[in-house]
Design a binder for these strands. Structure first.
Length: 295
DNA sequence: AGGCAGGTGGCCA
DNA sequence: TGGCCACCTGCC
């Protein structure tokens, strides 16, 4: 039983292969890869995944400092590095992207140097992106916050984890709609029923090659091309996944002259042009385009 | 105040 | 295969 007040551990360092600016950290945790991060009162980022809750802030040296509720410190110490894919040298992967012959990509890499792709739990990633259809990031965050608060187990005082798919299978469509899901409620409920009847089905996906993994994911109601690619990119470390959303369509029209191309054509262009780490390029293009959109 | 929003699925030619 | 449209409803 969690106590009524959270006692936070002292700040602890976490090393990454390359330094990170505050703005790029913000882009990583609040740029649409994940929907469970927000600012804590002291300005640090507070995030949650699985049974972990953490505060995160940049250190003077360009590394990261983290703190967690005392009772979760052990879990977080072991789960934070894989969540941040801390062993992956994204700078080296970015250097393999075709920036030498692609001036727009080159300026994206420079503007968001240090950008990383998270390695989130697959099931939670799926849930987040099932909620995302024609929603803005702020609204998706509200939805998952409600799902956690109302239907997920408490892991620290007042902080709940997301419900598992088995738990979601017991939640009525009406309750889901009450979490602001709208027509997405049916996707969540049908997917929950599907998965709860097939233990291990989702975990198997992580072992499959990209194309097959994507095919399998698309069997789930509410999972199309875009959501499947997001789940594989942000929840399974498949860097060849190239999600095509409205921002990427804009980027391809404005920066690459691909006007009138269908999402499928753009996806193929992306994988051919950017290569095996196309998903990393996508995240840079996405960050750039959003920054322009905000003015 | 009202249009619009990180898509998907189902229908039609 | 390709294009169109309904689907919910809380924000800016």
């Amino acid at each position: 039983m969690p106590s009524s007040v959270i006692v936070w551990s002292g700040w602890q360092p976490l090393a990454l292969p390359e330094p990170l600016s505050p703005a790029v950290l913000a882009e990583i945790v609040d740029g649409g890869q994940t929907f469970r991060w927000s600012r804590a009162p002291d300005g640090a980022w507070q995030g949650a995944w699985s049974d972990s809750v953490v505060h995160l802030k940049p250190s003077e040296s360009g590394g990261l400092l983290w703190s967690s509720p005392e009772n979760l410190a052990g879990v977080v110490a072991s789960q934070l590095p894989p969540y941040l894919a801390a062993s992956v040298d994204f700078a080296r992967l970015a250097d393999d992207l075709p920036w030498r012959s692609d001036p727009h990509l080159a300026r994206c890499l420079e503007a968001f140097r240090g950008l990383r792709l998270l390695r989130q739990p697959l099931g939670e990633t799926l849930l987040g992106f099932l909620c995302s259809a024609t929603k803005q990031i702020v609204q998706i965050k509200q939805i998952v916050a409600l799902l956690a608060q109302r239907h997920g187990r408490e892991i620290a005082a007042g902080i709940h984890r997301l419900p598992t798919w088995t738990e979601l299978a017991t939640v009525s469509e009406e309750q889901l709609r009450a979490c602001l899901l709208g027509f997405r409620a049916r996707y969540v409920q049908q997917t929950a029923r599907f998965l709860s009847e097939r233990p291990g089905w989702l975990d198997q996906i992580e072992q499959l090659p990209y194309v097959e993994a994507k095919e399998r994911l698309r069997e789930l109601p509410g999972v199309g091309e875009k959501v499947a690619d997001c789940v594989l990119l942000f929840g399974a470390g498949r860097l060849e996944a190239f999600p095509v959303d409205v921002w990427i369509i804009k980027a391809m029209e404005n920066r690459y002259g691909l006007e009138g191309w269908t999402p499928q054509q753009i996806a193929r262009f992306g994988r051919v042009h950017f290569g095996p780490f196309a998903g990393l390029a996508q995240q840079y293009l996405f960050a750039w385009e959003r920054a322009q959109g905000r003015g």
